[in-house]
């Protein structure tokens, strides 16, 4: 049963990831990426981390990808045909990517095969993560909040003023 779920959602994740990379239309790409992330959230549940699975859906599918779609629609990109990549770049991109992937798979199959999982439940509820986060990882946590603040200011600086000058918001 677990394996059936794994293989089904692994197939979903890979197929939709391929659509993201191969499809010409950015809106279809963004929606496929949402589907792929959703499948990954199922993987997280299989990895005994339901808390992070929920976060994955909230943060990625619910916020980041909506932002992507918003920008794609705002810039009205869906009608702009993407120029074809040069054949040299296509060839080099696919071959080097494939070589990289094959190398990665080779090393995983060769070295990363573990005997068995440790016994006992793996406690990953909100309480455990929270306690760890505010004890061992307080400093990184604060740094991330500062980073987020900087990102907000940066995004406003980059897109805010020029945008208002050109046209009113829809």
């Amino acid at each position: 049963m677990e394996f059936a779920i794994f293989f089904f959602f692994a197939a979903v994740a890979v197929i939709f990831a391929l659509v993201v990379v191969l499809h010409r239309n950015p809106v279809v790409g963004a929606l496929s990426l949402v589907a792929s992330f959703f499948a990954l959230a199922v993987m997280y549940v299989l990895l005994e981390a339901p808390f992070l699975a929920a976060l994955q859906v909230i943060v990625y599918a619910g916020a980041i990808m909506v932002l992507f779609l918003f920008v794609i629609m705002l810039l009205n990109l869906q009608h702009v045909a993407e120029p074809v990549t040069r054949p040299v770049q296509q060839f080099l991109g696919y071959t080097s990517g494939a070589a990289f992937g094959l190398g990665l798979l080779y090393y995983i199959v060769k070295y990363a095969v573990f005997a068995k999982l440790p016994a006992g439940p793996f406690v990953t509820d909100a309480r455990t993560i929270g306690i760890k986060l505010f004890e061992a990882y307080v400093f990184p946590f604060e740094m991330v909040s500062i980073l987020l603040l900087a990102a907000i200011v940066g995004a406003l600086l980059l897109s805010g003023r020029q945008y208002q000058k050109r046209e009113a918001a829809p």
């Binding site: 808390f51 859906v57 909230i58 619910g62």
Partner: peptide
């Protein structure tokens, strides 16, 4: 489920 309210927000965000 253990993370009930998070599931709600995850699904509502879709």
């Amino acid at each position: 489920v253990n993370a009930g309210i998070l599931v709600v927000f995850a699904l509502a965000s879709l």
